Simulated assay, not measured.
Amino acid sequence: MARKAKNAEKKSVAVIGLGRFGEAVALRLVALGHEVIGIDGNADIVQKLADDLPHVVQADSTEAEALRALGVNEVDYAVVAIGASLEGSVLSVLALQELGVKDIWAKASTPQHGLILTRLGVTKVVYPEADMGHALAEQLCGV
């Protein structure tokens, strides 16, 4: 059974891009009791997650109006978990900013991708593979 964070306020989060990383983020947020809308352009991915995510839709995350129609302009946080498409990642961030979403976390696949996201004003840039590799190395060495 998943633990809920003590004294944690329920948040609403849009997770854009439901590959391995985005799926893991979205499922964990749901397990922690947060309201999540999962968005992906791939119908097969959306269908696969339909039983696990209460709100999962196929949409073009690069279009602000499509995101507005889904209520993404009302979320507390957005996670852009698109790593394979630099263009999709950047345009999704721009669409979220156009909607006024203030707290945007984004996955970067390369240092250059991360630099672009940083310059766009993303709240937090994450490098899942590198971050997990560092954490594992530190665990192995007792750091």
Rank of each mutant, 00 (worst) to 15 (best):
S61N: 01
F21T: 14
C141L: 15
E129S: 14
V80A: 05
L86M: 15
E23R: 14
L94M: 14
S85L: 09
Y77I: 05
W105I: 15
T62C: 01
D51Q: 09
F21S: 04
L53D: 03
V13D: 08
V57S: 03
H134P: 00
V80G: 02
I37Y: 08
G88F: 07
C141F: 13
D51W: 00
L27A: 10
L29K: 06
P111M: 13
E63C: 07
K11I: 02
S85R: 12
V93D: 01
G17P: 08
R68Q: 07
E98Y: 00
Q58R: 14
A59H: 06
E23P: 04
V93H: 04
G83H: 08
T62N: 00
A31F: 02
G19R: 05
A137Q: 06
H134Y: 09
T110E: 11
G22Q: 10
Q139H: 10
H34A: 07
I16T: 03
V143I: 14
A108V: 10
L67P: 03
G19L: 06
R119Y: 09
G22C: 09
L53H: 04
A59R: 11
D131V: 12
A137L: 12
I116S: 02
D60N: 15
Y77M: 06
E35W: 00
V125R: 07
Y127C: 07
Q97A: 02
A130K: 15
L94E: 05
K10Q: 15
Q47D: 13
A81G: 13
